[in-house]
Structures are given as structure tokens and as C-alpha cells.
Simulated assay, not measured.
Amino acid sequence: MELAEMFLSEKVILADAWSNEVALLRDQGLPLGFLIPPNSLAWMELFCVIRGAQLPEVEALLQVLTKPTVLEVVSVAQKLPPSMNPKSHTFSRRVTELPGFDPSGSLSNLAFADANYWSAGNDRWWPDWERIRGSG
């Protein structure tokens, strides 16, 4: 991993990195800190149910995926904090020590994108996105 090499060589002492990247580097023995500045833009994953999906099967899958024990295993595997509020479930140290874990469950130090703004502008921005992406 290039970031690990740059830290090890001390060519880099500060970087912008995803929390799971920092966790992986820590696992490799790099003594890295992790800071989320106030009002940092949050990245959240979500589940979508596709129109026409067999709802009993979808419901069964979502019931499994949202169990605290499953969220813990997924969280540890991905090295990303779970989306479940830690006030409603106690997670192990493997989860609570992940970079970016918010023990308050409030996520109050994060900023969330305005979905209405992005949805309204998506059609206008898409041609520019495709042009930029194609030039890379």
C-alpha cells in the first residue's frame, strides 16, 4: 500500500485517509492517530429494496444484516464502525477501537449531504461527470 510506504519512509506525516485505511495500517504496526474534524462530510452506506423484489426474502435478508452480532462481524471485517447506535447495543473493543467509532452514537461532529440538493442537481451534473470521468 503506497500510503503505508510513505508513512514508513516518513515522507508523509499527515494524510487524508478513510478510517478503514487507517485501521489496516495500524494492524500493520504503524502508530497512526485518527482525527475527524468538526463538520466533516459523512459517508453512510444504505440498503435499497428494488421494485419487484420478493419482499419476504428481502425482509429476511435485512433482518439478518441488521442483527447486532452480524453488524459487529461485518464492522470488524470491513474495519468500519457499524451504523447501529452504540447506546442500544454494546460492541466489543474490536469495534469500539475502530477509527471513526462514535461512542455517543450522535454523529454530531459530522455533516451529512443534503439528499434533495444532490437529487435535484444530478441530471444537470451527470454530463460533466461523464466527461471528467472519461478523460481520466
Rank of each mutant, 00 (worst) to 15 (best):
C48K: 10
G100Q: 03
S40C: 09
A4N: 07
L32C: 07
S106E: 14
W126N: 13
T69Y: 04
W43L: 15
V95N: 00
A60F: 01
A77V: 07
I13N: 15
E59K: 00
W125G: 12
N116Q: 15
P38C: 02
G52P: 01
V73R: 08
E130L: 10
N39D: 14
I50F: 07
V49R: 01
I36R: 08
F47I: 00
T66I: 06
L62F: 00
S83D: 07
F7N: 03
R26P: 01
A42M: 05
N39K: 10
A15D: 05
W129L: 09
E72R: 01
S83T: 10
Q63T: 01
R93P: 13
G121R: 13
F101L: 04
P31L: 09
P31C: 09
A60S: 08
R51L: 07
C48G: 13
V49L: 03
S75F: 02
V74R: 08
T90L: 13
I13S: 15
F101K: 05
V70G: 09
D16G: 10
L3K: 09
M1E: 11
S83P: 02
A53E: 01
R51F: 07
A42L: 07
E130V: 15
M84R: 10
S108K: 12
K11M: 14
Y117A: 10
F112I: 03
T66H: 03
P103T: 08
P31N: 14
R124Q: 15
K67F: 04
L41Y: 06
